[in-house]
Amino acid sequence: MAMTLDVNGKPLAVKAAPDTPLLWVLRDELRLTGTKYGCGIAQCGACTVLVDGQPVRSCATPIEGLAGLKITTIESLGGAHPLQQAWVKNDVPQCGYCQSGQIMSAAALLAAKPHPTDADIDAAMDGNICRCGAYQRIRAAIKEAAGMAPATVATPAAPAKV
């Protein structure tokens, strides 16, 4: 069955079955591989994209209800988005696998709340799992992208030279 999806501002015809998860249409049919497969049960956030500006887990979202809605993937940010720049500056990526989902959730947060509180960040990023544990750097990068002073992260003092 053919249908048209609005992906990153472009109408794209897809031929997948209506119950096909969006993730597989993006990766396999449209060759947009920035969105990652993580758990397959909408629990880890690696596959997060935006649908009409809201974060959704593409691994568990069938395409049948997406006609006429705006789907935004990490590819639409083009590498120069303030979040991506802040991610690099704050050394957020380690393995990098979760980053596209993290950035898309953060982008939705900043669109809704340009100057989020720590509680706002926690709520928006809940469910986006980072196996490397870069959560403090993620928070700092979100605040930097929002033009806010990042929270101070305590670092161990260097040993005294004798």
Rank of each mutant, 00 (worst) to 15 (best):
A151N: 14
G38L: 08
Q102C: 06
A154F: 09
T117H: 01
L30C: 12
Y97A: 12
A154R: 13
Q94S: 08
D122H: 13
T35I: 04
R31L: 14
Y135S: 08
A151L: 13
Y135V: 12
L83Y: 07
C132K: 14
P116E: 11
A2Q: 14
G65I: 05
A134T: 15
M3R: 15
D6Q: 14
A140M: 06
K89F: 01
S76V: 00
A60N: 10
C98H: 09
A42Q: 11
G40V: 04
H81K: 11
D120E: 09
A13I: 13
I63Q: 03
K113G: 03
C130T: 11
Y37C: 11
A13K: 13
K15E: 14
G45S: 13
G40R: 11
N8Q: 06
G78Y: 08
G38A: 12
A158Y: 04
V92E: 07
G65E: 09
N8W: 00
D91Y: 09
V51F: 01
L50H: 02
Q99T: 15
A141Q: 07
V56H: 03
R27V: 07
L5R: 01
G53P: 03
A123F: 00
P93I: 10
G45C: 03
A124T: 01
N8V: 02
I74Y: 03
G38V: 06
V92W: 04
D122A: 15
Q94G: 06
A146I: 02
R57Y: 12
A112V: 05
N128V: 01
A146H: 01
D19S: 14
L109P: 00
V92G: 02
A16H: 04
K143L: 14
R137Y: 08
A112F: 06
T4L: 06
T73Q: 03
A60V: 15
Q84I: 01
L69C: 09
K70C: 08
A154E: 15
K143D: 03
C59W: 00
T117L: 00
A123V: 06
A46D: 13
G147D: 09
L50Q: 08
E64A: 14
L77H: 03
R131L: 09
A42D: 14
C59T: 03
G65Q: 13
M3E: 11
P11S: 13
E29L: 05
